[in-house]
Amino acid sequence: MKKLILILLVIPVLFACSRGDAVTKSVEAQAIHDHERCHLCGMMITKYPGPKGQLQLKSEEIVPKFCSTRDMFNFSLQPENQRQITALMVHDMSATDWAHPDDKHFIDATQAWYVYGTSRKAVMGPAVASFATEEGAVQFAKEFGGAVLGYEQITLELLLGE
């Protein structure tokens, strides 16, 4: 009987240890292909200029991709979606072309700097241009206008123009 109790106590510990490995897997952005559609609005992602976004969800195998960082934020800032997100990625626009962002230049959106209200055209309203460094964002804002913001300053109220 003692062996049975010991086995029943050890099994949950083994499962708990194996679950930790799944949570710590590295996060890498996926390439956006020509015919992929925005997870939020359904538009063709690569058809439009400006930075794109993607995220990873806790329990999903799919990687939601977005035609703009604006759409990515509109999705990710919704309270019902926030607790499901494990990673957010955006293009570093100081390292890639505005018209055709290169997917090799995805960065962690939570560490990025943003320029909101720029004159550069993007899809789905005012661009939320993303940059790996504050210096890159400031230089872009000097050239094309807009306010330099940190990740925490991007809110639904800002995106709605309130």
Rank of each mutant, 00 (worst) to 15 (best):
G53E: 12
M93Q: 07
L88N: 08
P79G: 06
M72A: 09
S76W: 02
M89L: 11
F73Q: 10
S76M: 05
L55V: 12
Q56Y: 05
F73A: 12
R83Y: 13
L55M: 15
R70E: 14
D71A: 07
F75A: 11
D71S: 09
H91Y: 01
M93A: 02
D92R: 00
Q54I: 09
P64F: 07
V90P: 00
S68T: 01
A87N: 10
Q56C: 01
T69Y: 03
E80W: 08
E80N: 14
R70K: 12
Q56R: 12
T69E: 06
E61A: 15
L55D: 12
K52L: 01
Q78L: 14
T86E: 10
Q82K: 11
K52V: 00
K58F: 02
H91M: 06
N81K: 12
Q82H: 05
R83H: 15
D92H: 04
G53H: 10
I85C: 02
K58M: 04
A87W: 08
D71Q: 08
Q82S: 11
P79R: 13
Q78E: 15
T86Y: 01
S59E: 14
P64L: 12
D92S: 03
N74H: 14
D92L: 03
L88C: 07
K58G: 04
I62C: 13
S59W: 07
V63K: 11
G53P: 05
D92Q: 04
K65E: 09
N74S: 15
A87R: 05
F75L: 13
Q56H: 12
H91S: 03
N81S: 09
D92W: 02
G53Y: 09
Q54F: 00
M72Y: 01
K65A: 06
Q78V: 12
V63A: 07
T69D: 13
E80T: 14
M72G: 07
Q82A: 11
S68H: 01
G53N: 10
E61N: 15
S76H: 09
D92P: 02
E80V: 14
C67W: 00
G53V: 10
M89V: 03
L57G: 09
K65D: 00
I62S: 15
K65Y: 03
L77N: 10
P64Y: 06
Q54Y: 02
L57A: 13
S68L: 04
I62R: 15
C67A: 09
A87F: 05
V90D: 06
Q54S: 04
E60L: 07
L77R: 04
D92N: 02
Q82R: 09
V90H: 03
K52C: 00
V90T: 10
M72S: 10
E80R: 15
G53S: 11
C67Q: 02
R83C: 08
V63N: 06
C67R: 05
S59Y: 11
N74G: 12
S76G: 14
F66A: 02
P64Q: 11
L88H: 07
H91R: 01
F73I: 09
E61Y: 14
I62Y: 14
G53C: 13
E60K: 10
L88G: 01
N81T: 07
N74Y: 13
Q54V: 08
M93S: 06
I62E: 15
F73T: 12
D71V: 07
Q54K: 08
R70V: 10
E61C: 13
V63P: 02
T69M: 04
H91V: 00
P64C: 10
E61W: 14
L57E: 12
K65L: 00
K52T: 00
E61K: 15
E60T: 13
M72N: 08
I62F: 13
D92K: 00
Q54P: 05
L88T: 09
